[in-house]
Amino acid sequence: MFLKHSTQGYYANLPRTDDFDSLTDPKRYVPLPDDWVVGVADIVGSTDEITRGRYKIVNTVGAAVISAQINAANGAPLPFVFGGDGAGFAVWPTQRLAAERALDAVRRWAREEFGIELRVAMTRVCDVRAAGRDVRVARYAPNDEVDYAMFSGGGLAWAEEEMKAGKLSVPEGVAGDTPPDLAGLSCRWSNVKSERGAILSLVIEPQDGVPEECFGKIAEAVVAASGADPRGLHPVPRSGPSAQFPPPGMTIEARVRQTGPYLVRLGALLVENALIWALMKTRGIGNFDTKVYRAEVAQNADFRKFDDGLKMTLDCDAQTQSRIEGILRKAKAAGMVRFGMHAQSEAMMTCLVPSATQSNHMHFVDGAAGGYAQAAARL
């Protein structure tokens, strides 16, 4: 039975697991209450942006949706998922208006700063269920300080389809002239080169009508194929990513910040990043250990997820890629899944860092040359 009324603490009180493999089991997911609201966002023409070499901007806009929602909720735990060229999330009913304003503000910001059109929409969980889909979540915790939501039930995918068809949206202007609160959003790490052969972006979705248990078995086989490596083909080295000066995303981050003229923001970031780059060349200062922090970046990285399907960014050798592709081609021939793959030489990260002195920083990993967006285009 679904809960009809709930508080914001519903998600915060759900159990967490550090066993990603177990999340192939649909029984590990818990239905969100009927009165909760799901939100989705998607960049229009993301493949054209990739062609123009602007995929880092695309990732930043996708992560900005999540950053704005976390800040609108004053840091209260809420389920969200990063999709490369968009994002999905859910909030409790009293948070809906603030969530809509945050979506509208990010939409206007993306348009004004980057010339990017962002579709945004929200709908109640009960309406998703009335359409024959569901919204169920699980919490995956790579460490004690960070966890990421996993989604199943097809609800987010349905909401995105309705949004793209023009049936769901958030009205323009509900945020007024208020800019989005993107505090903590950054993109300072260097791209990570593949050590095994290629950075493989993988998107797998069940065909319509396929039971979740059947899709779970296929996902389990794919995860097991990547699990032959002790770190699951993690694209970020155990010691963490490297930093360079100036960082590749500095001009983008200057547009994330909302106070002062652009050149002043850029100048301040130049000084700030010079100090950070110099600090990263040392063991740290005070209680801040650069070696520990960089290792935490790798540990906290969100490189695989369940999002009404399975998405993974893997540092993959040719043999393992062939094995994964063989599993998926067989499943596709049986009418069970559709999938898309995209190989590139580097991965990149977009980060949410509430505080550099704490361990709750989050890092969204994607392929640097189209990643999830290109893989999804090949479904």
Rank of each mutant, 00 (worst) to 15 (best):
G335T: 06
G309F: 02
E325C: 08
P354R: 06
G335N: 11
V353R: 08
M312R: 05
D308R: 00
A347L: 08
C316M: 14
D307L: 06
D308W: 00
S355P: 03
G326R: 09
A333C: 01
M312Q: 08
Q358E: 14
K332R: 12
E325L: 11
A334M: 11
H361K: 08
T357H: 13
G326N: 13
R329M: 10
D307P: 02
G309T: 03
R329C: 07
L310Y: 03
S322R: 14
M348K: 07
A343Y: 02
D315S: 05
D307N: 04
A356F: 10
Q344Y: 00
E346G: 00
K311P: 01
E325R: 11
M362C: 08
T313F: 09
L352H: 11
A347T: 07
Q358R: 13
M341R: 07
V337G: 11
S345G: 07
N360M: 06
T313W: 05
M349L: 15
M341I: 03
H361A: 13
S355A: 13
H361N: 14
G309Q: 02
Q344E: 13
T350N: 05
A331D: 04
M349W: 08
P354K: 09
Q358K: 12
A343P: 00
E346H: 12
C351S: 15
M336D: 06
M341P: 09
D315R: 13
S359E: 13
Q319K: 15
V337Q: 07
C351N: 14
G340F: 04
C316S: 11
A333L: 07
S322W: 04
V353P: 12
D317T: 01
S322Q: 15
T357S: 15
I324C: 05
T357C: 13
K332S: 06
H361D: 07
G335K: 06
D307Q: 03
G335R: 09
M362T: 12
D308Y: 02
H361Q: 13
A334C: 09
V337P: 10
I327W: 02
M348V: 12
M336A: 08
G326M: 12
G340A: 04
E325V: 12
S355F: 03
M312H: 05
R338C: 03
H342D: 07
A334V: 05
V337L: 12
Q321D: 13
D307S: 11
D308S: 00
S322F: 08
S359V: 00
D317E: 00
A356E: 12
D308K: 01
T320V: 15
D307V: 11
G340M: 03
